[in-house]
């Protein structure tokens, strides 16, 4: 049963990561001239500050762990019912997001691979034009990379669509993690479940709004 706790703990850690990631990226909503300076300064901080480095490795590890642990649990859970029902009606007793966490998670994983390949691999593999910050520091112009990427329609569609499984995954995962860790109290349960729904909506819309804004507004 220990696997479940790790699932919940790593899931909650990734939730915190999402908040940080979104907070930083929301700078992209500023008008391009302001955003360019702010985002590039932020990017510099993120790539050079040692603690961030540690955190980022922790995040990669969590993602991998969350995925592998999830697969192992799924294998065990499938083995717990070898002979399936001829007629089953699970919709009568549970919401489908809770039953398809694996599928939603896989969709998110596929997106992550594309996402990381696009930004991370892209950033390291070729020459990126430089940009001079207000204080004179010369940095890679990552803002323009993002900006250019989000000016492509297919890219915007991919990003916006992929926020849907993320939101759905979070809508069950957030409250579920609290339950798995035993953090449950009749007085606070409604707050936790409300927070779960609010969190999943805010995160998925927050991320989706960035490519949309850049594509349509700037």
């Amino acid at each position: 049963m220990a696997k479940k706790y790790w699932m919940a703990a790593s899931g909650l850690f990734l939730c915190i990561f999402l908040v940080g990631h979104l907070a930083g990226n929301l700078q992209l909503l500023l008008p391009p001239n302001e955003a360019k300076d702010a985002f590039n300064a932020y990017a510099l901080f993120m790539t050079t500050f040692p603690a961030v480095k540690i955190l980022s490795y922790l995040t990669y590890a969590s993602i991998l762990f969350h995925a592998i642990d999830g697969i192992m649990l799924t294998v065990k859970n499938n083995a717990a019912r070898k002979e399936k029902y001829a007629y089953n009606k699970p919709s009568a007793n549970s919401v489908w997001t809770s039953r398809y966490m694996g599928v939603l998670g896989t969709a998110i994983l596929v997106f992550l691979v594309i996402h990381l390949w696009a930004f991370w691999a892209g950033m390291h593999s070729r020459e990126i034009p430089t940009y001079t910050l207000a204080d004179g520091t010369v940095v890679k112009d990552l803002y323009s990379e993002v900006y250019n990427a989000f000016k492509q329609l297919w890219y915007v569609i991919l990003y916006v669509v992929c926020m849907l499984p993320l939101g759905l995954h979070l809508s069950h995962g957030f409250t579920s993690a609290f339950q798995s860790l035993g953090l449950n109290h009749s007085k606070y349960n409604s707050i936790i479940s409300f927070a779960g729904i609010a969190f999943s909506i805010l995160i998925s819309i927050g991320f989706a709004i960035i490519p949309l804004t850049i594509y349509f507004k700037y």
Binding site: P90, A92, N93
Partner: peptide, 18 residues
């Protein structure tokens, strides 16, 4: 419980409903 081969809880809540 684990040894008997039951699956893990994924908090779907179906059990409490049924």
């Amino acid at each position: 419980m684990d040894e008997e081969g039951f699956g893990n809880c994924t908090n779907t809540g179906a059990c409490a409903v049924e």
